[in-house]
Nucleic acid binder design. Structure first.
Lengths: 337, 337
DNA sequence: AAATGAAATGAATACGATATCATTATAATA
DNA sequence: TATTATAATGATATCGTATTCATTTCATTT
């Protein structure tokens, strides 16, 4: 069925469809914007003409008149992290599920977030979801002014006026220490990631808080980037400089894998007999044979529910309250502790 | 610095900026579209006014007049696969690097590709990059008609008129068999993924071709989804049903990991002494201690170069030839063979 | 068949930018 | 200073849709 007749490398517009269907442009518009007051006969004629010409409504023109783009911006950071990537995918899925399209913005070291948001705003997106990055209060104010809802996901922001959906990292850190302490460990190390610095710091704070409560003041701390290699190196540094701790808490499974492999294969330590290791995120590989890592699981789906409930309300003009929503992380017990 | 004065939840437009700066709207437009013929004094005045009002050009209005959106669509499939995710990230990066924005479309089982492309076209994207999915020739024809360049990445398509950038999977399969044969192996199995069925089939074809050339007719074949678990199960089935082959070629590292772990931990086989295993993609984990997997590396960066060279040319109106571009895969030798 | 109200359609305009063409200001030359 | 040539700016049409308001068509009732 050769249904393409667009003349000159341009897509046909509603006017041309109207001409072919012998109706006004307004009628075509009504058919495609799902209005009800259209005679069935007319609607059919219009749809046929559109099919013949290969017509598709122009989203930009529509956006211009409606003053909304049907786009939702996802602002991410540039990092290879299975857990993070999976999260991004889920967010994109949800956006599509609500009938909108995800517009992607990756913030690198060069471009700071404000610069990027400035770009984002050019597209008159319906909403903005920022993953693991901090938004300036100035930019937040601007978004509020022009009524673009913003959700900051997985990054604790102080601003009371924007929606923040985040795991309770401080609590998780505390739980980790508590769990390890109760298992009988008395000397500790922490490997965090400066790629997710805020998150790592929170986890570390909860971790040391709990240790302090139990009268333990010392905790070896290494902050490194976020790769397997970094986990190995951090572990090496810990073992060399400070001697073997009884338990290591890693703010990321990949770091934990590196640490585990280094302990096992270089220092010939048995896990958990000689040293206990705990991770974070529960990525797929955490349940694989060589690791079977005790780790934390974030309630991503619940967090997404909250995020999109909020956005749905906001985008429908219903009231919705901002503020920080914290979600508990759960320990997944395996055999590395 | 309170620089936001947008009145009523609407962003200011160029007219308002013009009024404040005492120039015509056209002049504001010229300043923001980077024209040169503007007196420095005027430009400064305009920029100040814009800053005061928090003005940002409306990308939809601009797109409407220019008849291009500055958006490039990335059409992906919904799958958790580190290698695939990394690829998607890289594509997004490149799009941003060329000054455009990536618009995401995830094609699931429910929505077929044509339906999605129909959506895509509404946004009048400048170009479309389809990852690991097949585009119908009808849709390809339509895109060509309206002059939207399309690149199909990592999925072999027959259509001669659209640009296809793909690893040479048949050759890679052949190379795998050849490599294993030369290492002395004489009985083989293949684990492929029906998530990436076309790719797997090509690799299998090359694999068996080479085996046949060496007088080997038998090859156990399992096609499964794409997870670690699937790799385990496939391996289990192979060992149970067909007995232990000397070498297994997996069309994906995750499958290989599952297969390896099953061999090691359930059947107590030594790798590579008892059984050789070869993977595909060279994801990060392939170089980790527990696996150290011999695998293939795709020349993603070169493929992206080709992709974006093509797009750059097309988008600048320069001639560029379509067709299939195949890229060799390289064996990364480690210790699983 | 005429009158009435509701439903369907058309005409005109707004949305916010770019680009063309006309006009004015500026600089360069005689 | 008068005369050009050129640079800078302004006025206006245009892009493709949605929407308001006016008008026509249709079905229903009398």
């Amino acid at each position: 069925m050769a249904h393409i007749k667009a003349a000159n490398g341009r897509m046909p517009n509603s006017k041309e469809v109207a001409a072919l269907a012998n109706v006004s442009q307004a009628t075509v518009s009504r058919v495609f914007s799902g209005q009800t007051n259209i005679r069935e006969k007319t609607r059919k004629r219009v749809l046929e003409a559109a099919e013949t010409l290969g017509y598709r409504p122009n989203a930009m023109a529509r956006g211009l008149t409606l003053n909304r783009s049907n786009l939702i911006a996802i602002v991410t950071i540039d990092v290879v992290n299975p857990h993070y990537n999976a999260m991004v995918n889920k967010v994109a899925d949800r956006i599509q599920y609500m009938g909108r399209e995800p517009l992607f913005f990756v913030s690198s070291k060069e471009k700071n977030l404000d610069e990027i948001l400035s770009q984002v705003l050019q597209y008159r997106v319906d909403a903005i979801i920022v993953l693991s990055a901090a938004i300036s209060s100035q930019m937040a104010a601007e978004c509020e002014k022009i009524q673009i809802p913003v959700v900051v996901f997985n990054k604790y922001t102080v601003n009371k006026n924007i929606m923040t959906v985040c795991s309770d990292n401080v609590q998780a850190g505390w739980l980790a220490a508590n769990y390890l302490y109760e298992k009988g460990h008395r000397s500790f190390a922490f490997i965090g990631s400066d790629t997710f610095l805020g998150t790592s710091k929170d986890r570390l704070r909860g971790f040391t808080d709990c240790l302090n409560e139990n009268g333990i003041e010392d905790c070896i701390v290494r902050m490194v980037p976020y790769t397997y290699e970094d986990g190995r190196k951090a572990m090496e540094a810990i073992l060399k400089d400070a001697g073997k701790p009884e338990a290591v808490f890693c703010a990321g499974d990949m770091l934990a894998f590196g640490a585990m492999d280094f302990c096992k294969n270089v220092y010939d330590l048995k896990i958990p007999a000689d040293i206990a290791i705990m991770g974070f995120d529960n990525i797929d590989a955490a349940s694989w044979d060589p690791y079977f890592l005790t780790t934390f699981e974030q309630q991503i789906d619940k967090m997404l529910d909250t995020t999109f409930d909020y956005l749905d309300k906001k985008l429908n003009g219903e009231p919705a309250s901002e503020g920080v929503q914290l979600f508990e992380c759960k320990i997944i017990e395996r055999s590395s502790v």
